[in-house]
Simulated assay, not measured.
Amino acid sequence: MSSVVRRIARVAAVLWVAPVSLCALPLLPLALWRAQWRVVNGVLEITGPALSWFLHGPWFRLLTGGAGFAAATIGHVIVARDAGCMDGCRVHEHAHVRQCERWGPLFPFAYVGAGLYAALRARNFGAYYWNNPFEREARAAEGRDKTLP
């Protein structure tokens, strides 16, 4: 594939995912305080103490059964508690970026729907995350997978 075609495809992917990426804007105040920003493979990665507080908040602890998240993907933006979490979660979170590039603005709805279906099927709310097919695909990208019975 020529470099021009690659650039056009990349711009198209960014535009396709832009509505989801813009959902990260409310995190901007948290991403400004002592945060580190960098771009890796066309994805904005942000770490910082205020983001750590956000990812460890009750809204995420509910989904994970108490641990909160080390990182989260919102379109082409990944936020993580710190650089160590980002390094440890990079493969997993970049798998979510690729999923978002496939689904575009429908990704959040597909993710939530798949999680609810998994939870209802297992009759266990923890399955929302652990049995969600999008999470299973991301864990498989890391070379691991775990589901709840």
Rank of each mutant, 00 (worst) to 15 (best):
D82L: 03
G115T: 03
A118Q: 01
A71K: 04
Y117C: 13
P108Q: 13
G57Y: 14
A127H: 01
R121L: 10
A67Y: 06
V77D: 11
Y117H: 12
A71P: 06
D82G: 04
I74H: 02
M86T: 02
W103T: 01
C89V: 13
P58S: 15
A110P: 00
R61F: 13
A71N: 06
E93I: 12
N124S: 07
A67L: 14
G126H: 08
L63P: 06
L63Q: 10
F125W: 11
L63T: 08
G113F: 12
T73C: 12
G68M: 10
P105H: 00
A83R: 11
A119H: 03
Q99M: 10
I74M: 12
I74R: 04
L63M: 15
I78P: 05
D82Q: 05
C89S: 13
G65L: 05
R121I: 04
A122V: 05
V77K: 03
M86G: 00
A71M: 12
L62W: 07
R81K: 14
G113M: 09
Y111K: 04
G84N: 09
A72L: 14
G113E: 04
N124P: 01
T64W: 05
G115H: 09
A83H: 04
G126F: 07
R81D: 15
W103A: 10
G65D: 00
I74D: 09
C85Y: 02
F125A: 05
G88F: 06
G68V: 10
L120C: 12
A127V: 00
G88S: 11
V112Y: 04
N124G: 01
I78D: 06
L106G: 04
G84D: 15
L106I: 02
E101R: 02
V91M: 11
Q99W: 06
P105L: 08
I74Y: 03
V91I: 13
H94W: 09
A110K: 10
C85D: 14
R102N: 06
E101G: 02
Y111C: 03
R123H: 04
E93P: 07
P108D: 12
R102L: 11
F69M: 15
L106R: 08
A119I: 00
H92F: 10
A67P: 00
F107Q: 07
I74Q: 04
L62T: 11
G66I: 06
I78A: 00
Y111R: 09
L106Y: 03
G68R: 05
A127L: 04
A95E: 13
Y117T: 10
A70R: 11
H96L: 05
G84R: 07
E101M: 05
L63I: 15
R81I: 14
W103C: 05
V97I: 08
L116F: 03
G66L: 08
A127N: 00
